[in-house]
Amino acid sequence: MVSYVIKRIAESIPTIIIGITLTFLVIHLSPGDPGSRFMDPSQPSEYREILQNRFGLNDALHIQYIKWLKQVLFHFDFGNSFYNGKPASGMVFSALRPTMLLAICSLIFALIVGIFLGIIAAVYRDALPDRILTAKMMFFFSTPSFWLGIMLLGIFSIKLGWFPASHLTSLYHDQLNWSGRFADYVHHLILPVITLGLPLSATFYRYIRTGMIEALESEYILASRARGLSVSKLLFHYSLKNSLIPLISVLGITIPALLSGALVVEVIFSLPGLGRTMVSAVFSRDYPIILAASTLAFVTVIVGNLLADVIYSMVDPRIRIKTQGVL
């Protein structure tokens, strides 16, 4: 298992390098330069030169790249923000926390909702509950999170005023005791988590429903039923376990989508996360921040994928044999 994890990490290094190299090239080869953004057009053009020099943008591209890569790899230094001069790595890392909080809560929410409803639909297959749920889930599956977000924001935050419309915490967050802080988080996160989690739960619902139906119909379940095992035990012990396995394999694919979704949700609910940092950095051409944020996004996805694969191989013995064979 350990060697498998090492192998996977080694495999993912080229992915990260290719990703950040492409990002670097895209940024530096694109039309327009940050210098002119900061500059008052009335100022002399030498001023622009000075700015460009200060940002290190006047060197040849490959020199810039090598310098940058060295700093990143050996000092974990992505440079400083063009705007406020703070280290990009620090800014991006502090933005990662809200994103992770949002993503993980949404994932858990989606799993609970998806699995629970999936079981109900499978048990009442083709009866009324299944038909209603399947139609509802089709709706959520097809609903873009940004629309769901705006609707929730409009109704519950702006119109009814039940939930805050922005930020992860209240201003007085630090003065609360831990239970108060927790409640504060929940209060701020409920709408974003529903927005990000509900469409995702529809995906999980589909997998669980099909998996459960297949499992419930399999000969081995029928045989156990004939042997008089209780239905609820069968349901949770055998069928669910078997239908969870494909779900874990989709988890890997879900992670990049989750991060992309979080980006939109952060913009709608003004959460200070990675996605929002990225969007505003892109609009303002803050190169170090863009690079740091995309690098972090790649790494997060890869780590998430790795975790999903490790869990998968722990759950499904067939995969474990295969990986042993490969190694």
Partner: peptide
Amino acid sequence: DILLGFPKLFVILLLVGMGY
């Protein structure tokens, strides 16, 4: 595999945001 690992929206956002 590499491309599937990219968070699509981040990458396209970057490309479009950079002026394309």
